[in-house]
Computed example of a mutant assay.
Amino acid sequence: MYRRLLSLSLYILLCLAVFAPAPAAHAEELRIFSGAGLMKPMEELRHNFEKQHGVSINVHYGSSGEIFGMLGVGQTCDVFIPGAAKYTMDAVKNGWIEPSTIKDIVKHVPIIMVPGGNPAGIKSLDDLARPGVKVALCDPKAAAVGRVSKKMLEKAKLMDKVQPNVVVFAPTANQLLVYIALGQADAAINWLDVTTWAEGKGKIEVVRIDEKRNMIKTIPTAVHVSAKDKPMALKLNDYIASPEGLTIWEKWGFEPCGQ
């Protein structure tokens, strides 16, 4: 009798397993390629989305040139967020990004970052060309802020004069912050949002760039054409640009594109 009951129980369990509704199919892990300078808001956005949707998200942070290059050699992601729209539009031209998924999120505002107290007395772009001033810039071939810095200085006809003062071409905006916070350079052209980071608190100051000379950029988010879980990738993309998401971006010093 006991064996019959046991056999019946096993049969029922087997039937339940066979005929139970299949769980929703999701990729094991969503993957984001993000500009390194966006790390602070992106980590908060990632954590919130994981908690809300029960998914795992892996974020690769690198310079905009690096993450663009990763797409170029065939690596794929679900969501692509470089530090400037140019990289997204170039990715669209190459057939890597779904154009209809592009959403402009926030502005990237260049400023001059100086050590606390501004020991070199930097007041404008022109001061970066003064003899003896130590300047830190990002590599224009690697980071969005490096590309913008080069264009800005060239437009102001200052690049040839500033070039001899450059003590380092850093690969990311994050490393520029470190150079200035440690006093290893007198000035750096960096993003305004990076100045809100705890690593620079009390160690750096901001010198605004004249609006007529400045080149403010847009940060977009978009979905890769080969996203493994397209529905969830679209949800993540929407969340990053949502009102809730924008509150997080603003918390970290970014200005929404609609303002």
Rank of each mutant, 00 (worst) to 15 (best):
D238I: 10
L38R: 05
M232D: 09
G72L: 14
H26F: 05
A222S: 06
V92E: 01
K51A: 15
E255G: 03
L30M: 07
A173V: 04
P131F: 01
Q163R: 14
K93Y: 15
Y87V: 09
H224L: 08
D238S: 10
W191E: 08
E211D: 15
G200D: 04
G258T: 12
V166W: 06
G54M: 05
A91L: 11
R130C: 12
V145C: 00
N94H: 09
H60N: 11
I240P: 06
K161S: 14
V178K: 00
A185M: 11
V18G: 02
E28M: 11
Y2R: 13
G37I: 03
V79T: 06
E255I: 07
Y179T: 08
G62D: 07
Q52C: 10
P21Q: 11
P41A: 13
S149V: 04
A22R: 12
V92I: 12
I204V: 03
I248N: 01
W96D: 15
E205F: 08
M232C: 04
A188W: 03
M42S: 08
P99S: 13
F33Y: 12
I12P: 00
S64A: 00
D127N: 10
L13E: 02
T172P: 04
E205V: 00
G37Q: 01
G258L: 14
S34D: 05
A233S: 14
G72R: 05
E43W: 02
P231T: 02
K151L: 11
A241S: 02
